[in-house]
Design a protein around this nucleic acid. Structure first.
Lengths: 335, 335
DNA sequence: TACCTTTGCGCAACCGATTGTGCAAAATAA
DNA sequence: TTATTTTGCACAATCGGTTGCGCAAAGGTA
């Protein structure tokens, strides 16, 4: 019935005491400020009876602290980020923080906008998977504790927690090469992201280390979507089809596989595929997909931990967590 | 460099004017309050120069409005809810609202806790996929605009937007029956949710309408997780194995299929399967899975629209959106 | 009785904005 | 010149809490 909860002042008026006293009782400072036991009782009962809930907004303003963390990610519908969000939510809940969610759609404008909005809302900290390669617009944010997740900028003094994308991509590529593949195409995601760049680097480095020439069109595609995987694969098949595809995330892999099926090609006989981002269903596809697993839960938890360390003024070092190759049936050995 | 953004008062002091004037200029009320053009210019320049961003917390308190919506869902890592979250985020961003995200893990305690927290933060509205069958704890929340998504309580005067779960389940079951299946087992999710109950109802109703007896253990399982699908399927296979499985969401389907594979059984020759919740990868599994598609984007958008109608005092009617059966290869015809 | 200590609590400022009202100075009219 | 209107802006309350400090009344001591 109460329109919006009772206030401390209303309780005070009911009991004919000051709001100061009510506040002190409800904050457990009754003893400290010599509030009589009788008054304390009365206050507690009234608060209980009317389901008193302190107005966080007022608290935020007074204490200059919102107990809120901004989570800025490119795509919550991408299971990788959804899982990250979940572990972060859980970890933050344990620490009495809530999440303001921003989905940037990997759009720089939307990202900047989101950061502005979160600043205005005075979040206590930021967890962000940034778009772009330079991160120049983060320099004006150095005063608010920020931890990058999944993507980062090494030239900025902002800690990050991410998969060792280079290593993961290198191993995946090496795996393909050792299986005898020479003509491998990498379908990449958004070029303007560090995770993509590192993966591409791992790919090219492995190719080079094994003496394989990098051809034109050996890295194709332009974002982390299913649609991109799909269209890139269609194009690839129409030309000089590679024997193996390295999909730089789970969405791209789905799209590529859809295209392969549509074309009536078989995996892995006609084309092999390996994907970044392990997902439960990769075990069930036809055939099960060999993937590079990212330690999602570890990333989420470590990021939250780092953020809290940062907020407490501790020194925080960036973390690159090791990926793991999960071998299944989507890559054929050739000779 | 600024520790946390400049305030209206600081601008006022710099220009030797009052914060009132600054506020009025920045709110475009200069003309209305007869601020001179010169003063207006000075204020605008100062604001621009120092990247003035109004403190939303102060605004919230003063205007009694937070431009924040609470999104309360059971599991953000479930792609169904992740997609819902994404469409909601986009729709809300267009309307200048942000999302406070709560993942309840389908736990009543966590849900209540989340609602309390969101109340304290004075969200302008609530989008929630509730746990439980009765929703009694929502009665004390009637004063804050709320729209249920995916799940709901018809006895409460709170509008909802959801799939017509009964119809979807009925059609799926009927499809199995028409394919000749007689021994069908339904692996359900959390019994204490309306969506689950409606789906189970659709299942049993279809069975009854087609004169098929309901046996013991014809509905098994207890939550919407992969683990549940997996363990339920293992148990089912060890006894009197049904010819078809109806998985009540995508996660359960994944788990069940994993189990089927582990057991060395074939889909659909040994056991057919049909799932709720269309997902892109269901097209790629071995075999592609026949599913009931929920109109996720429509639900998300309609829910946000309903919430705004509610906040504007309009009359809002509950919406049950039609599902669609997507036929693939995971159900075998038998005779 | 006079003085000191303890008890119990309230006053008022503050956080950063918005907003109704008031009021001097300047401009205009009579 | 005087009265009136217009211009240009500031004061102070308000939102709902927290917190440093002050102070009267009660109790204790000499």
């Amino acid at each position: 019935m109460s329109t919006s909860g009772i206030t401390i002042k209303q309780i005070a008026d009911m009991l004919n005491i000051s709001s100061t006293t009510v506040s002190r009782v409800l904050n457990g400072r009754a003893r400290q400020y010599r509030i009589s036991e009788r008054t304390e009782q009365l206050v507690r009962e009234a608060a209980e009876k009317h389901h008193f809930q302190p107005n966080q907004i007022a608290l935020n303003l007074r204490l200059n602290k919102t107990n809120t963390i901004g989570l800025v990610i490119p795509d919550i519908s991408n299971p990788f980020f959804a899982n990250l969000a979940r572990t972060a939510e859980t970890a933050l809940r344990l620490r009495d923080k809530m999440i303001l969610l921003c989905d940037t759609n990997d759009d720089t404008v939307r990202e900047k906008e989101s950061l502005q909005l979160l600043m205005g809302r005075k979040v206590d900290g930021l967890l962000v998977a940034p778009v772009g390669l330079s991160g120049s617009h983060f320099e004006s944010f150095t005063h608010i504790p920020t931890v990058f997740i999944d993507r980062y900028f090494t030239e900025l003094p902002i800690p990050f927690v991410a998969t060792d994308n280079f290593q993961g991509a290198y191993e995946a590529t090496e795996y393909l090469i050792k299986k005898g593949h020479r003509h491998i195409t990498c379908i990449q995601g958004l070029e303007l992201t560090v995770s993509n760049r590192e993966r591409v680097k791992g790919f090219t480095e492995a190719m080079k280390d094994h003496g394989l020439p990098m051809l034109d069109d050996q890295v194709v595609g332009d974002d982390f979507s299913i649609a991109n995987g799909h269209s890139a694969m269609l194009k690839l098949a129409s030309k000089n089809r590679p024997t193996a595809i390295f999909a730089l995330n789970n969405q791209i892999a789905i799209g590529a596989m859809q295209a392969i099926h549509e074309l009536g090609l078989r995996i892995p006989q006609d084309v092999s595929i390996i994907s970044f981002d392990e997902q439960p269903y990769f075990e069930l596809t036809a055939p099960p997909v060999t993937t590079v697993r990212q330690p999602v839960a570890e990333i989420g938890e470590a990021a939250v931990q780092s953020l809290f360390d940062l907020m407490e003024g501790k020194n925080v070092v960036p973390k690159l967590l090791p990926p793991a190759l999960i071998e299944r049936k989507s890559v054929m050995g050739i000779d």
